[in-house]
Write a protein that binds this DNA or RNA. Structure first.
Lengths: 184, 184
DNA sequence: ACGCGGCTGCGGCATTTTGTCGCGTGCGAC
DNA sequence: GTCGCACGCGACAAAATGCCGCAGCCGCGT
């Protein structure tokens, strides 16, 4: 049984909080930290079994924490998250011992599934409907937009999309979400 | 040390031949095959220590060969190549035991380096460019596609996009990799 | 004050990319 | 054999996007 709470290491305070909440709500105690040092402190106190690790910790790579986590607890299960995904880092992360590597935006369920994946009992039900491409896009755009303090031009550049297109996208409310009729 | 030649598994005959040649020219005997079955045949005869595996083998995933290769020879070192890089498949490949995951186009030297260098280095900073929307989309699609075992129709349904559109997107091989403008 | 550079919103196209249909094929189940 | 399902692909209209340009606002250095 997990004694120590799930450790969430992510410098994005908002996202971090959301994650912690989501876990707690599911009956899984979680502890969020936003810096490698905080993380180390927690690790020393009580090595967690489950960890959600953001790769981009205020400039430094969360990758370096993986060995430390594993050193503290061999059966530690780590899921690496990142908003700046790259194949290279993904490969690194897995080789270092992470269980999964997911790109933000990601659904809580996906993280849970990844974390529990090792446990055959748990039904990994992929049934959870994946976000539609448009939804994913929307979330991503919002994230970057926020990172750019609402600056549309900057966001467009960061996303390598046309400012005009971004404007148009933003102008449209993502309201109509086809509930995928057919109920079945 | 290596008794069996390097095994090149890639359905792209041309590229395959190029690779084999490149290896041979460097004094490393290589054997090229273009189908999973051929590969299995070779493996049964003489399990190779070094393998270059293309992920996209005429529709089927080369991923399935990884366990077989490892079963045949535990110290088998596999480098996965792919023209359609995605984080999802990269993670899978590494988890299955591949040593490296490289995206085509790739230089022979990179493959060699990957085959010989077993020790990855933990590099620090991550390139912080957010993924372009198209890249994000690509990653997402790959993930779902994998979750659906390559079933295009099912994936399209899950993503709530038209099968035709998905086909078209998948058909477009180009690297969704953006030039990573500017840098920060 | 004035010019400069950056951001925003928006009006038009010309291009691309989609949504949709339909057709033919292969495969496994009944 | 027939049915259901998946695949690949051609065709074409509808929508989205890329790419102009223009005008208004702001903050800034001269």
């Amino acid at each position: 049984m997990t004694t120590a709470p799930i450790l969430i290491i992510d410098d994005d305070a908002t996202f971090n909080a959301v994650l912690v909440r989501a876990f707690v709500r599911r009956g899984m105690p979680a502890r969020g930290v936003t810096s490698p040092d905080e993380a180390r402190a927690v690790i020393r106190q009580a090595a967690p079994e489950l960890v959600v690790l953001d790769l981009n910790l205020a400039g430094t790579s969360g990758l370096t924490l993986i060995p430390e986590l594993l050193a503290a607890r061999q059966d530690c299960r780590i899921v690496v998250l990142t908003g700046y995904a790259s194949i290279a880092t993904a490969v690194e992360a897995i080789k270092l011992g992470a269980m999964q590597y997911l790109a933000k935006p990601v659904e809580i369920d996906a993280i849970l599934a990844a974390l529990e994946d090792a446990t055959p009992e748990i039904e990994g039900a992929i049934t959870a409907e994946p976000m539609s491409v448009s939804r994913l896009e929307w979330e991503h755009i919002q994230r970057i937009l926020q990172a750019n303090e609402g600056n549309i031009s900057a966001t467009a550049r960061a996303l390598q999309m046309h400012r005009r297109t971004l404007q148009r996208k933003l102008g449209k409310r993502p309201s109509p979400f086809a509930p995928l009729a057919g109920g079945s």
